[in-house]
Write a protein that binds this DNA or RNA. Structure first.
Length: 552
RNA sequence: GCCCCCGUAGCUCAGUGGAUAGAGCAUCCCCCUCCUAAGGGGAGGGUCACACGUUCGAUUCGUGUCGGGGGCACCA
């Protein structure tokens, strides 16, 4: 409907020989419904360049508008707004769209699939996933679903480091446990991991267990002196733990990438040589530096340390070069905000390769910290992990649906307070239940009606005339725009907000009107309306990865 | 000191440069003879942190100040 009106306006402007190509926003939904279904500020935007009074301009534009089956009236308001009022026919067409498209309603596929890779979670295998990873998982997965709904061919990728200082710490910690050193002891590694899960790994290692993760399988050697064997087993064990965390959160990845493979396959060395050839490096104090200041960094960065090893950002650049070579002209990295300092460096490194990689590639979506609250107090400790709240703790306590909803329902760039009591509440305080309840209510009515849902596509909709009915239809019509905007803005939370509004419209309608009534024509029209609503709620919840229960 | 994010109702938060800034909770009042009251309707509650700019128009954009959080190694 928005596209239809945009076309009308553009045509009108062309008739008047006005160039609108420089205007990005032609139409919006007014906050106040008294201002119509759609509103255009085009006359005010054009007033200055054309040196004309905006209201006069608006008048001319309205006169030049082509005829439409869907417009009830247009008016000029305020400083020069053109307000469009849709007729009921336009609103009925939304129900027809939903009936025709079913679970594809809200999807905006333009036919051609373009590749995009989304990297998210990317936790190193040093412990169970914590709440912060959970936020990344919920936001990242929802973003993938949104991109998929908007015609992208999405690859979900998980990158992790199975070597390096943190993994050494892990190995030392397990080894300490194998030697019977308790985490409280002074002999325990200073930067070691002290959670109870380290003891579990040690026991499994001694028992010579076999662990299978999504991307590897390792059998424990059992020798407490073989550090390399301990490292391999611990990594596999924790990868498997994380797989179980992700499975409980109903998230799947297409590709797992290991940092160590970048070294063993010569990708890191390759990237370094390319950088040296490109002339953006220099030697100083026995170290190799990259002149990242040429690309917007505030100081140059060391690539190869004086002791010979590479700094962490070199494999990062090599990894992203691989992404580029794999054909991903679009890459989105969903990460915690503590990684923000790497953005400039990675992009600078990619620029320095002189391979024509766009300056703003890859894109980043950063999420801020999560604080978990229970009974008004911050929760900081998990028995399993020791020093942080795990994702599994939350899922077990409040369920997958509520956890996913709460972690995705806020703008990623604002700090999130996760209220366990609220997430557990089975009342209207809790938005998850409020939305799911709307869905279940409709299912209940449809079940009592017992008719053929498919036959609703030929039901006469003209009996739908009341304000609650038209308000609900209007809300349904917004869904495709909401889905499209959520994807372009990388803003999964707007789906959650929309669903609350849609559920509210449904509940208002439901309270005002009985559906299973004597008047057959009105009854069927209302059933068609709630069926369309049910479908839309379900489609929206699916985008969030939240279930749509038929009974509650 | 430098960089990034945030500051909107008592609380948790929405809000494409647009019209009288919204929702839920909390507080107060009302609505089940009725398809799920896990619901609905209403009232009160605001210097959109502050200042100055840009603009026909700023909660939204820019600069600065003040708060809160995060990041600033030849660590990852």
């Amino acid at each position: 409907m928005k596209a239809h009106l945009t076309e009308l306006l553009t045509t009108a402007a062309q008739t008047l020989q006005i160039d609108t190509s420089n205007l990005n926003v032609l139409l919006e939904r007014p906050k106040n419904t008294q201002h119509g279904d759609f509103s255009s500020n085009i006359a005010m935007m054009l007033a200055k360049p054309l040196r004309q009074n905006p209201r006069t301009l608006a008048e001319q534009l309205i006169k030049a508008l082509p005829a439409s089956d869907y417009i009830a009236k247009t008016e000029i308001a305020g400083a020069g707004f053109i307000n469009f009022y849709l007729n009921n026919q336009a609103k009925y067409s939304i129900i027809r769209d939903i009936q025709r498209l079913g679970n594809k309603f809200g999807h905006n596929n333009n036919g051609q699939l373009k590749k995009v890779q989304v990297e998210f979670v990317s936790a190193n295998p040093t412990g169970p996933l914590h709440v912060g990873h959970g936020r990344g998982a919920a936001v990242g997965d929802c973003l993938c679903r949104l991109l998929d709904a908007n015609g992208w061919d999405v690859t979900r990728e998980f990158y992790y480091n199975d070597a390096g200082a943190q993994i050494d710490n892990l190995t030392l910690s397990v080894q300490a446990r194998l030697n019977g050193i308790s985490p409280e002891s002074e002999d325990f590694p200073e930067n070691g991991y002290r959670g109870a899960y380290i003891a579990d790994i040690a026991n499994a290692y001694l028992a010579k267990q076999t662990v299978t993760a999504d991307d590897m399988q390792v059998t424990a050697v059992g020798d407490i002196h073989d550090a390399e064997a301990i490292r391999k087993f611990a990594v596999a064990y924790l990868r498997n733990e994380q797989d179980l965390d992700l499975k409980a959160f109903q998230i799947k990845f297409d590709v797992f990438s290991l940092e160590s493979a970048l070294y063993s396959e010569g990708k890191v060395e390759n990237a370094v040589q390319t950088l040296i050839k490109s002339g953006h490096t220099y030697e100083q104090d026995d170290a190799l530096w990259l002149r990242t200041t040429d690309f917007g960094d505030d100081k140059d960065r060391v690539m190869r340390k004086s002791e010979g090893g590479y700094t962490y950002f070199v494999p990062d650049v090599a990894y992203h070069l691989e992404k580029w070579k794999r054909g991903f002209t679009r890459v989105i990295n969903e990460q915690g905000a503590d990684h923000h300092s790497t953005i400039t460096r990675v992009r600078a490194g990619l620029q320095a390769l002189d391979l024509g990689i766009p300056q703003a590639w890859p894109e980043y979506l950063l999420h801020q910290m999560v604080t978990v609250m229970r009974s008004g107090e911050e929760v900081k400790i998990s028995k399993r992990a020791g020093s942080y709240v795990t994702l599994r703790d939350l899922i077990e306590e409040v369920g997958c649906d509520a956890t996913r909803y709460f972690l995705a329902a806020r703008r990623p760039d604002s700090q999130l307070i996760f209220d366990i009591d609220l997430a557990r509440a089975q009342t209207n305080d809790n938005p998850v239940y409020y939305i799911q309840y709307a869905h279940a209510r409709i299912c209940s009515v449809l079940a009592q009606w017992g008719g053929d849902v498919a036959a609703l596509s030929s039901v006469e909709l003209s009996p739908l005339q009341s304000t609650h009915e038209t308000a609900l239809m209007q809300k349904l019509g917004e869904f495709p725009e909401v889905v499209e905007n959520a994807a372009t803005e990388l803003a999964p939370h707007s789906i959650a907000n929309y669903l609350k509004e849609l559920a509210s419209s449904l509940h208002s309608f439901y309270n005002e009107h009985k559906i299973l009534i004597e008047d057959d024509a009105l009854k069927l029209a209302r059933i068609a309306l709630i069926q369309a609503t049910q479908q839309t709620i379900k489609n929206g919840l699916t985008l969030l990865g939240v279930s749509a229960p038929e009974k509650m």
